[in-house]
């Protein structure tokens, strides 16, 4: 890739040709406020917060490709004044219950306000929205609060460009614009598959998971639901799993998850879940160690061969595990009778 040199606020940085000034700045730990930008999606230039000064002209850095020798200032008086108006307008239009909002610590709006510096008295002079819109709690896994929505459109673009479903679109226009499903029906009545891709990308707390706790540490793992083997990070608090996060580096899912992988982790904490092997002795299941259990299975397998044996594998296993099962069945048990549930 061709490297391009440019200057941001006097610092010379390098960036790959074709990247935007915003991405180049962020990659070099230079923060430029932004709300509608997401690294997975094409830029739209809607929030008007990422403006920068290039030779006295304001340009949106998300749309501005890097150029050799480009001299960018992230905070000229004009850029600052424009950003100030935009953030004040957003804050005046936003509910103020940040303490009870699950998204506060990740909230881009708060980050931007913090970065720009906001004068509470100025916000007070602005007019506040009158009637709050109803919150959509119909989906079992996440809720949608249109009052917190900043209409960045990330959810719309995510559902169309990443998920390929197109459940959401902008509905109405002007200040009456909302994010909505067909007919503005509750999520549960739409074609939404609850994958939560939009929820994780929502920069504010508008689309938010219903259950959310911050884990004390995370463990890298693989989702157990199907053979895709999506990479996940399980968030752990004490001996409980409290969150699931997609692994952006895993080639099989590249940061995406489906409804089961993302929200279906509660079984891990269930009291009825088997945590050790059980061996039936005298009509009763008794806890055993793995060595005991595997010895018993090996011993019993030795009594059978060829057509006396069949293997049924699980889609919950990884591809590698399934490969091993068929190899074992063919090479050791000497039969081709292998099947797979292939559905879930």
């Amino acid at each position: 890739m061709e490297k391009i040199k440019l200057t941001i606020d006097g610092l010379e940085i390098e960036a790959e040709a074709g990247t935007s000034v915003l991405d180049a700045a962020l990659a070099n730990d230079i923060y430029i406020p932004h709300l509608c930008h997401h690294p997975d999606l094409k830029p739209v230039g809607a929030c008007r917060l990422c403006g920068v000064d290039v030779n006295g002209r304001m340009e949106m850095s998300c749309l501005l490709p890097v150029r050799e020798g480009l001299d960018v200032k992230t905070n000229s008086p004009e850029v600052g004044a424009t950003r100030q108006v935009a953030i004040e307008l957003l804050l005046a239009d936003h509910p103020q219950g940040c303490l009870s909002c699950g998204a506060s610590l990740q909230c881009e709006l708060l980050h931007i306000a913090d970065h720009i510096g906001v004068d509470g008295e100025r916000i007070e002079r602005l007019r506040r929205p009158s009637e709050p819109l109803p919150i959509d709690n119909s989906n079992p896994f996440f809720s949608f609060d249109p009052n917190k929505c900043v209409l960045c459109g990330i959810c719309v673009r995510t559902c169309e460009d990443i998920v390929g479903l197109g459940v959401l679109d902008f509905v109405n226009r002007g200040s009456r614009t909302v994010i909505g499903t067909f007919g503005n029906e509750p999520f549960i009545d739409s074609i939404c598959e609850s994958c939560g891709e939009c929820v994780v990308r929502c920069p504010v707390g508008s689309l938010a998971p219903k259950r959310w706790q911050r884990p004390s540490h995370e463990v890298q793992s693989t989702c157990v639901y199907c053979g895709v083997g999506c990479g996940i990070y399980l968030g752990v608090k004490g001996d409980q799993v409290v969150s699931v996060r997609a692994d952006r580096e895993r080639p099989s899912n590249q940061g995406s998850l489906c409804v089961k992988g993302r929200y279906g982790y509660n079984f891990i904490n269930h009291k009825d879940r088997l945590t050790t092997p059980l061996i039936k002795k005298e009509g009763q299941f008794v806890e055993a160690t793995w060595d005991e259990a595997l010895d018993l299975v090996a011993e019993k397998f030795a009594d059978y061969k060829g057509s006396e044996f069949a293997a049924l594998a699980s889609a919950k296993c990884t591809n590698e595990d399934n490969y091993l099962i068929q190899k074992f069945t063919r090479a050791v048990m000497q039969t081709n009778t292998v099947d797979h549930c292939a559905r879930l």
């Binding site: 809607a46 929030c47 424009t82 005046a92 239009d93 459109g153 614009t177």
Partner: peptide
């Protein structure tokens, strides 16, 4: 309704 200054600014 796409960009913030126009959508919220005209409303304000």
């Amino acid at each position: 309704g796409k960009c913030v200054p126009c959508r919220l600014g005209t409303k304000q």
